[in-house]
Design a binder for these strands. Structure first.
Length: 284
DNA sequence: GCCCAGGCACTCA
DNA sequence: TGAGTGCCTGGG
């Protein structure tokens, strides 16, 4: 990867495995807006960032070298060798090879745990346009300049006030997440230091955080790349391709993923999820 | 109008 | 402990 600063932009070239559309639309994040073909705006890490990709380059703006090196390289996981991951996984089975071919520009973002946690609590039993709308409403109401609210900015919110943002029954879950983090019962930063299993248990102390939401937070923000968040889509695609289209319980799926994909299970999940959704596997 | 959407908590055997 | 059921809301 090569990058240079030009005016208010960072121009990145010779970057393998980077497709901005696939990265943002593969279901791992919610604060993005499509402005045109391969042209997006995201809000993350308290910044608004535009990203435009053409055949030979990716432009990030407004962005200087400092922010690129200190925020976005990490956020977009640019130091990781995806070619190696894709080669390894593709050799394991042909289904995954096909999924990887389809979503070859996917990367796993390293999001902020706090935002990731609240966002995936909102996501349960919900659809994407609504999820995005509720998160935006939280940001507009409590955050600074449309950025996702910090704990300090949102900690005084009552359940009733949260409910007014149209998040429904999830308002009490968001409230509980705020209280547990505020009190230190759940120390998000400390979760980086412990293993996935222990971190999952901690996250599930929060009301409204079950196995699926916890695994999303672990994978998308706490760098536990071996976890395999299993939602309805992943369940469908796993059942369809690996379990002879039979009703499959979550434990069997986790076991299969762990055994076959090990430390790369999280990446496999993302390729399969994107593949399944695009093909609408399992839906009528 | 009904149904469902990237789960979860709660209840009851 | 495991299966069944209800949940806010708004878009199709």
């Amino acid at each position: 990867m090569i990058y240079k600063a030009v005016e208010d932009k960072i121009i990145m070239t010779e970057q393998e495995s980077f497709n901005i559309e696939q990265i943002l639309e593969c279901g791992q994040c919610f604060r993005f807006e499509k402005l045109g073909e391969m042209y997006y705006k995201i809000v993350a890490c308290k910044k608004e960032l535009f990203i435009r990709q053409t055949a030979d380059r990716v432009e990030f703006f407004p962005c200087d070298k400092y922010d690129f090196e200190n925020i976005w390289i990490e956020y977009f996981d640019l130091n990781r060798d995806y070619q190696k991951i894709k080669n390894t996984l593709s050799k394991r089975d042909s289904v995954l090879a096909e999924a990887i071919k389809y979503g070859s520009g996917i990367r796993l973002l390293n999001q902020e745990p706090w935002e990731c946690l609240l966002s995936f609590i909102i996501s349960q039993n919900n659809n994407i346009p609504r999820i995005k709308g509720i998160i935006r409403a939280m940001a507009d109401t409590y955050g600074e300049n449309g950025a996702f609210p910090t704990l300090e900015e949102i900690e005084k919110a009552t359940v009733d006030e949260l409910f007014e943002l149209r998040m429904g029954f999830r308002a009490k879950y968001i409230y509980d997440a705020i209280q547990k983090v505020k009190s230190g019962k759940v120390d998000l930063e400390a979760l980086f230091e412990i293993n996935a299993e222990e971190a999952r248990e901690k996250l599930m102390l929060i009301k409204g955080v079950g196995p699926k939401v916890a695994d999303c937070v672990l994978l998308f923000s706490l760098k536990k790349k071996e976890v395999f968040p299993t939602d309805v889509w992943v369940k469908r695609v796993m059942s369809y391709f690996y379990f002879n289209n039979e009703e499959t319980d979550i434990n069997a799926i986790h076991k299969y993923a762990s055994k076959n994909w090990g430390e790369y299970a999280g990446f496999a999940q993302q390729y399969l999820f994107y593949y399944a959704r695009s093909l609408k596997i399992g839906t009528k």
